[in-house]
């Protein structure tokens, strides 16, 4: 099943309850089975799904009041909602930058996922809060990559480091981060080329960049339109570098971003921000509750978001 269909699957299963005359344990079981199937096919971890199913059932059956079928459906919906929120909130926290020292973030992800743009937004976010912020370009592959960062940097009035004559991303990473560490920068953002697990050399390169950069956090940037391949790619990135948090981009489109579930499951890293447009201020703090609302088709997440 394609991830975005998750919401409609869940709602479809729940609407069956509305039409059922009696809601007994068997009816609840059958709905939960359907929902679990939908989650499993969304590449959500088997153990997580089983756990979720037990939790929901416990919560729903605990209620001894013989509620009508409509309220039972509502109750299950709420339970599913809570469980999905829990799923999107792994126990680990994202790295919190420390004032007065160099905090280095390394951005990684598939081609075109939105790394360079997210770096500009992220830089803007911290710079506006008064942190001394800079960006480093280690993308020596994509045509015009340095110009892209340079033009963003000029618009934002934030310093950047890059060298059009240097073809080795590892050297650039080393020089760039050293330069800004020495200059007392607090937020240093390292941009890397897009890559995918099928090309082993690209992953090796990423590991080498990481070794010289020694980032405080590796951020995996994920496009919300991505389908079934996301789980494979996200786990491959996690295996290669210690992904500490996730940014989901392009949520201003139609995609519900169901793949986020798989990314979190695969990386066990929290989502920190979402991208909602191409402009530098179009990035919002991730909020699991409004995200799940959108995923389940319970209304748009905008308006719920903390800016």
């Amino acid at each position: 099943m394609v991830l975005q269909e998750l919401g409609s699957k869940i709602n479809g299963a729940l609407s069956k309850l509305n039409t059922a005359s009696v809601v007994d344990e068997a009816a609840v079981d059958s709905v939960l089975k359907e929902i679990a199937g939908a989650l499993l096919m969304s590449d959500v971890n088997v153990r997580t799904v089983a756990e979720m199913r037990t939790n929901i059932k416990r919560e729903v059956m605990q209620d001894s009041i013989r509620a009508g079928s409509t309220s039972k459906a509502k109750q299950i919906r709420n339970a599913v909602f809570n469980e999905l929120v829990r799923l999107l909130s792994p126990d680990v926290d994202a790295y919190r930058p420390v004032k007065g020292k160099a905090n280095v973030f390394m951005f990684v992800g598939l081609q075109g996922s939105g790394k360079t743009t997210s770096i500009a937004k992220f830089a803007n976010y911290w710079a506006r809060k008064g942190w001394k912020t800079a960006m480093v370009c280690c993308d020596t592959f994509r045509a015009g990559a340095l110009d892209q960062m340079k033009q963003n940097a000029i618009k934002l009035r934030i310093p950047y480091f890059g060298n059009p004559l240097e073809a080795d991303p590892v050297k650039l990473a080393e020089e760039g981060t050293k330069h800004f560490r020495d200059e007392g920068y607090e937020i240093i953002l390292v941009d890397t080329s897009g890559r995918h697990q099928q090309e082993a050399e690209l992953f090796e390169e990423m590991e080498q960049v990481m070794d010289v950069v020694e980032p405080d956090e590796v951020i995996f940037v994920m496009d919300s339109t991505i389908g079934q391949a996301v789980a494979d790619q996200a786990s491959a990135f996690k295996k290669s570098v210690p992904v500490g948090s996730v940014i989901i981009t392009k949520l201003d489109g139609h995609a519900k971003g169901g793949g986020a579930l798989s990314a979190v499951a695969a990386t066990n890293a929290p989502i920190t921000f979402i991208g909602t447009g191409e402009h530098f201020d179009e990035m919002e703090r991730f909020d699991a509750r409004s995200f799940v609302s959108r995923l389940m088709g319970l209304g748009d997440m905008r308006g719920f978001m903390e800016k």
Binding site: L3, Q4, L110, D223, G227, G253, A255
Partner: peptide, 15 residues
């Protein structure tokens, strides 16, 4: 369109 995209690819084309 990207082969990576899920359902959204169809949505993109249609829209």
């Amino acid at each position: 369109v990207e082969a990576l995209a899920g359902n959204d690819a169809t949505d993109q084309l249609v829209h």
